[in-house]
């Protein structure tokens, strides 16, 4: 009896398009990447349930308020009376600026209120109170 020998076909994973796929991924990540520029302060954010996501990081500037009452903007400590001037300049550069207030949950409201008042003076009116993971209702 004669056996037909199976034709030998090399099983090969086609790698020709691998580079294309990976370049596609690269382009996706390049476009979507916004580098973390500022570390800010290690604050413990309060929790909230009805949170909204900010659509674009590019328009967001954070102002950190820690429990000792220290203010940090762009990784620089800022005295309270300089906040209005600083954000006035920022608003001129980008009128669509959203200020993310990253206050420590143990911070005193008085200081937060002062910061809000300064932001009003700088006409930075879009404010977001940064909160952490969702609070159980």
């Amino acid at each position: 009896m004669k056996f037909y020998r199976k034709s030998k076909v090399d099983s090969v994973i086609p790698t020709a398009s691998m580079a294309d796929i990976s370049f596609l991924l690269i382009i996706f990540f390049m476009v979507s990447t916004v580098f973390v520029r500022y570390r800010g302060l290690p604050v413990e954010l309060p929790e909230a349930a009805k949170i909204e996501k900010l659509e674009s990081r590019r328009n967001v500037t954070g102002i950190w308020i820690d429990r000792q009452g220290q203010l940090i903007v762009d990784d620089q400590p800022v005295p309270l009376d300089q906040v209005a001037k600083l954000f006035n300049d920022k608003m001129r550069d980008n009128p669509r600026l959203i200020v993310s207030v990253k206050g420590d949950e143990q911070a005193k409201f008085g200081l937060v209120s002062d910061v809000l008042e300064e932001l009003r003076r700088a006409e930075a009116l879009r404010v977001n109170f940064a909160t952490d993971r969702e609070r159980a209702e």
Partner: peptide
């Protein structure tokens, strides 16, 4: 290409800013 992917993967921060939005007067 994969090296570049890994670089961008690690340097990307996907966590969005979120919180309670408010318009000040």
């Amino acid at each position: 290409a994969f090296l570049l992917i890994v670089f961008f993967l690690t340097s990307t921060s996907m966590n969005q800013d979120k919180g309670l939005s408010l318009y000040l007067p």
